[in-house]
Each structure stands twice: as C-alpha cells, then as structure tokens.
Design a protein around this nucleic acid. Structure first.
Length: 309
DNA sequence: GCAAAAGCGCCGCTTACGTCA
DNA sequence: TTTGACGTAAGCGGCGCTTTT
C-alpha cells in the first residue's frame, strides 16, 4: 500500500498532525465524542473493543495511537519521527504489531463486520489508516472462512469414514451370510439327489419378474437355475427374496419337507432363521423414503430394492 | 418514476514482503 | 549467508447495492 497517497499528498493536514504527534486531537474533530469511553473518544458502537483491554503492560501510553513497529527494529526504541518518516518514505509492507493484531482480533471476535464509524475509530486508536483496518478485516474474514471450511471438511470426512466403516461391516456380514445360505442350499440339494426325488412344491408367486422366471421351474432349478433378474448378477431366488424383504414363504416352504429326516429339517430351519436374520440386519434400519441413504439400498413403491446414488 | 452513472464495500484471487527454520 | 516454506499486508478485478444525476 502506498501510505503516501493517504497521509501524504492527499491529506497533508493529517500528515502534519502526525508528524507533530497531534493525531488524536486533529482526528478527534472528525467524529462525535463519548465521554464514557475514553479509549475511543466517542465510541458509540457496542462492537468496539477497548485497546487497553488487550494491550500488554509493556505497551506505550494507552492514550496515544499505536504506530507500527517496523521490521527488525520492532524491539528497539525509536522516536516517533523516525517511525513516521519510515512509514511515509518506504513503499514496503509493514507488519502490524502484536498489540495491534491482538486489538483487532478482539474487535473481530465481537463483530467480524466493520461499519465505517468503527473502522475510523479503530484506525485512530491503532494509529493505522482506515483502509489498513478494512483490509485487515477482509483478510481476517478470509482466513476465518478458510478455517471454517477446513473444520467442515474434517467433520464431513469423519462422518463419511464412519458410514463407510459401517457399510463395510454390513457388506462383509452379508457376504458371509450369503455363503452360509449357499452352503446350506448345496447340502439340501445333495440330500435331495440321494433320497427323495419328489419334486419340491412350486413356491407361491412373490413378485412379478422373479415369479415369471421361477414359476415354470422345477424345485431343483428353483435353487440352482436362478437367472439374472437385475443386470447380470446371478442370484438365487432366496437372495432375490431377501432383496424383496420377504422370506416368510421360504420358511413356510420348509413344511413341505416334513417327510425328510431330522438333519434336513434342521438345516432348513436354520436356513430360515438365517434368512430372517439377514432381513433384520439389512433392512430393518433402512429408511426407504429418506434422501440420505448414502448409497445404501432403497425400496421403491414396487417393493424393489435399488442402489440410490 | 425511471435509467444510467458514480461511489462504495466486499470477496476471491493474486502478489510481494517479512519471518523463520 | 542462502534458501524455501509459510503467514500476511496489500493490489486488482468483479459484483452487488445504494446514491446521485
């Protein structure tokens, strides 16, 4: 920033006032006074912060504007004329002092927006140009926004990780149960091949598409010759039924095997229990009408489960 | 009353400087 | 002493809103 354009050529009276260290008196005439706030000499805004509240004990007189400590000489004692000459003769950027930053931060915490009056008062109190105060607030808002975004990102990421963990656990359990069901089905098939060749009674219809494919099938094909009902994935009717959320007929079909031995019956009963368990595990907690399924299966009006994106 | 111009402040992006390891 | 990374003051252009003409 070109400080000369503000306090120099454009406002020679202000430059002279500063050179005489009379800034407070001259600037005081620019806004109304408020005796209740000696620090700001006229602060009427509740958002204003008293510089004395944040200034360290080693800071200069609270009644005088705080000029920036310049560069590496920040810790050295320099008279005000040197500082002012430096400020006006150099085009280089000068960092704000820690006191100034603390004061601005306090003020920012109270209100991150800057009204014109407040800006002028802050600038006066800190010995800065109003534009410098405005720029500081703009940059501060930007930094604050960045931090907020980072915080939001972290929160969303942790939520995503947690959901993914849950999903992975459910998915692996699903795979495990599928394997278990297939094993039981194979055992059942082997049993049927060795013993009773009586055809398994046709299952009652449970859904349009699946029913079309299974209606004319034998009991054997009912278990093994399941065809593609949803895009290439070979799934047994049992699995399809699971996806349709109803295994009651599967459990009911177990009664057709009452003539079998106890092993077959127990296997079937166990399979039925597994199916019930799978249903409970996967579908009971889902909310099909929710817009926040995050990729979990959702049931539409026809009772068909699909993957919502 | 309406429209164009001017003024102002804010924002996002960028640059340049100061500081530190 | 040099160098690269990082934080930050400030520049710039665009946009929206308000005021002026």
């Amino acid at each position: 920033m070109d400080s000369c354009s503000v306090y120099g050529d454009d406002h020679p009276h202000l430059k002279n006032a500063l050179l005489k260290n009379e800034a407070s008196e001259d600037l005081d005439s620019l806004w109304p006074h408020d005796s209740s706030n000696p620090s700001f000499h006229g602060s009427a805004s509740p958002a204003m912060v008293n510089f004395e509240d944040v200034r360290g004990e080693d800071s200069p007189s609270p009644q005088k504007p705080i000029f920036p400590k310049i560069g590496n000489n920040a810790g050295k004692t320099r008279n005000s004329e040197e500082l002012i000459l430096d400020a006006f003769s150099s085009q280089k950027k000068r960092r704000l002092s820690s006191d100034q930053v603390r004061f601005l931060d306090k003020s920012f915490e109270v209100d991150n927006k800057l009204e014109p009056e407040r800006k002028v008062q802050l600038a006066k109190e800190l010995g800065l140009q109003p534009r410098q105060v405005a720029i500081w607030f703009q940059n501060r808002r930007a930094r604050y926004k960045t931090k907020l975004l980072e915080k939001d990102y972290d929160a969303l990421k942790s939520n995503y990780d947690r959901l993914k963990e849950d999903f992975d656990a459910l998915y692996s359990e699903n795979e495990k149960l599928k394997t278990e069901v297939n094993t039981l089905a194979e055992k059942l098939l082997g049993k049927a091949d060795h013993g009773d060749h009586r055809p398994i009674k046709e299952e009652p219809p449970f859904d349009d598409d699946v029913n079309k494919q299974t209606k004319a099938s034998s009991a054997k094909s009912d278990v093994l010759d399941y065809s593609d009902a949803d895009g290439g994935n070979q799934r047994s009717p049992t699995m399809l039924e699971l996806e349709h959320g109803d295994s009651s007929h599967v459990v009911g079909a177990i009664s057709d095997y009452e003539d079998d031995d106890s092993l077959g019956r127990s296997l079937l009963l166990e399979a039925g229990n597994c199916l019930t368990k799978i249903e409970e595990s996967f579908y009971d907690d889902l909310q099909p009408n929710s817009n926040c399924n995050l990729g979990f299966p959702v049931q539409n009006n026809h009772g068909t489960w699909f993957w919502q994106v």
